[in-house]
Design a binder for these strands. Structure first.
Lengths: 344, 344
DNA sequence: TTTTAGCACTCAAACATCGAGAGTGCTAAC
DNA sequence: GTTAGCACTCTCGATGTTTGAGTGCTAAAA
């Protein structure tokens, strides 16, 4: 669907103006604010066309024009200019992410915070996904007579710990046995394969010793599961309440969605291979049908490993969102690469 | 300030009715719903008195009466009946808290969740406060060539872990040295005394070895600080948006407050010695001036150790909130006591 | 053929008016 | 001290009215 140049210019002007001000814009205002040397009547004709084609709509007869979902789509695909981020902003992002302590999880948690701050809306991020990541090493730390802590280190540099408790005294010797047995069987195994079924055959293979292990094994399963399912970080959820395109009901709907961990995870479960923009009902979840999502991915070792996203009303500064997210993703990936190489 | 019995009865009826329905109540409705055998005119007279005394107010001339902050106060202090919790609810609370894994933090995180669920409003809880808790043991786990994890076990049964990274190879021998040195100096020390100043003298006492330790020491400080400052858990923040006593602006204000970690911590920093109810501007924070807070404490080893609270509009079911919170606190304390005795 | 000026038209938002209903305070009688 | 009765006040919702912004259409100009 190609549109004459002037129409495109007008469409871009309407959308950018609307994104900036939140107000519908009419032919007269458009005339003054653009490099178009045509009268308002001419613009009106073009607006009528654009409206007929479904790119714009009028909230009511005597209001200006507002972009439709289709309009945003066209804008994002054809009209939007990518802008380079200002140096100070880049510097700020770097600082914020570097000061997270040395765990990938912290970096991504900071990533969502920074994104939310800079873009003024909700931001989400996932820790490196468990997909393809493996058990690297498991260690035990005795924390008390009946309690102990298990430390799982994955091939993607994540470290998860879990406490467990047994009815009997946990001796250092016992932990040594656990340690040897577990690492022998688990090192190198894909996290996802460490499931309930595996635990059973594993315990069985130990005969009577296996009977002592259920609490420990549960902790292992737990840790592997947590490390294997990418955790989702959310920041700035309350900012939704300031988006006056969303009424209280819609905002509540989105917030509810955000509070549901499984839904959030589902939303970010597929890591895009670049940056994606989903507008309105292009979103998979009906809760987000009035929202837009901009999502990008960061890479570890040059492979997409997790997502960073923002969600806002359809009136979102797409251009800036893309720039900010992509830069955050770039820096995050680099920092994690660094951590992993330190673990070597 | 004593009030005649009949007035008290009427006041209680107005408040309980308003808490239940959210609607102002008038003399006629009051007449039918109470065990008072007097006419609406008589009730009107009493209502007029109670209003003059500041316990009630009218939203407008032709509306019924609504409690004021003073009214709620009097109700809570003198009129409110404590009710025993139903058995199934007790059972539910126990189940939810027991299924949290074996860490005090998880129990308290669940505590706030359950409270929020049962009372339909925001709930907060603090992990056992660092006050008076000491370093019990510190352990190290090598997680990579340049990275390692430190595990701090406190006298209150908390376990905190922290990753750190050095520029040089971390050998097991080195960790052994760290381990011995740290535990010698730190075991039994109050968490709060493990601060920057301490770290400096500590590092100095090691001569050249001290130079290798800054990253590790930072991790120790970090872990002690985190273990020493009670973490605050929040649940059900979005429920505030359903309280129609709070308009969008007020709800936003409260949500903002909730998002500010330092404010939340301040709010719960003093652990009450029983249950406290703060109504309206009795709250220390002006953000909560339209809200009420019910806060109670749980005890570890018979000493108050942390708080569990709910915050809602002033129209809160105080009676139920008290029952639910106190029961949650009781169970939480017991479970934590158990964990600690398992570490012995 | 495209652009423009002019004008009648539509509609939302703001404001005013009105009646119904709820609940009151006051007064006078019990 | 209590009650019945009544006039009064105020909100709420429904129903106009006005105003202004922005439009679509038409006919003339470029």
């Amino acid at each position: 669907m190609s549109i004459a140049l002037r129409k495109q210019k007008i469409l871009a002007a309407v959308i950018e103006n609307y994104i900036a001000t939140g107000e519908p814009i009419g032919s007269k205002a458009l005339m003054s604010c653009e490099g178009l040397n045509v009268s308002s009547a001419t613009i009106r004709n073009e607006l009528a066309d654009l409206t007929a084609q479904g790119f714009l709509r009028q909230p009511h007869t005597s209001a200006g024009r507002v972009p439709t979902q289709l309009g945003y789509r066209f804008y994002v695909d054809n009209l939007m200019k990518r802008s380079e981020l200002e140096e100070p902003v880049k510097r700020y992002i770097e600082n914020r992410l570097e000061s997270s302590s040395d765990a990938p999880e912290n970096i991504l948690s900071s990533a969502s915070e920074v994104a939310s701050e800079l873009l003024g809306t909700v931001a989400l991020s996932t820790a490196p996904s468990g997909e393809g990541s493996r058990v690297y090493r498991i260690k035990f730390v005795r924390t008390g007579r009946h309690t102990s802590m298990l430390v799982l280190i994955t091939s993607t540099g994540m470290v998860k710990s879990r406490l467990f408790r047994c009815d009997f005294d946990i001796t250092p010797e016992m932990l040594n046995v656990f340690d040897r047995a577990l690492n022998e069987k688990l090192a190198g195994r894909p996290l996802q394969s460490v499931n309930r079924a595996f635990a059973q055959t594993f315990a069985a293979s130990f005969g009577e010793l296996g009977l002592l292990m259920p609490d420990m094994l549960l902790a292992v399963l737990d840790a592997c599961e947590e490390a294997g399912t990418a955790k989702v970080y959310t920041s700035g959820a309350t900012k939704l309440l300031y988006q006056n395109e969303l009424d209280l009901i819609s905002a509540r709907e989105v917030l509810e969605f955000m509070n549901d961990d499984s839904k959030r995870r589902e939303l970010l479960s597929t890591v895009p291979d670049g940056t994606e923009i989903l507008i309105g009902n292009e979103n998979s979840s009906p809760h987000l049908r009035k929202c837009s999502e901009v999502v990008t991915s960061y890479s570890i070792d040059n492979k997409p490993a997790g997502s960073i996203a923002v969600i806002g009303s359809m009136r979102l500064d797409y251009s800036r969102a893309v720039s900010v997210l992509e830069y955050i993703a770039k820096v995050s990936g680099e920092l994690i690469d660094e951590i992993i190489s330190a673990q070597s």
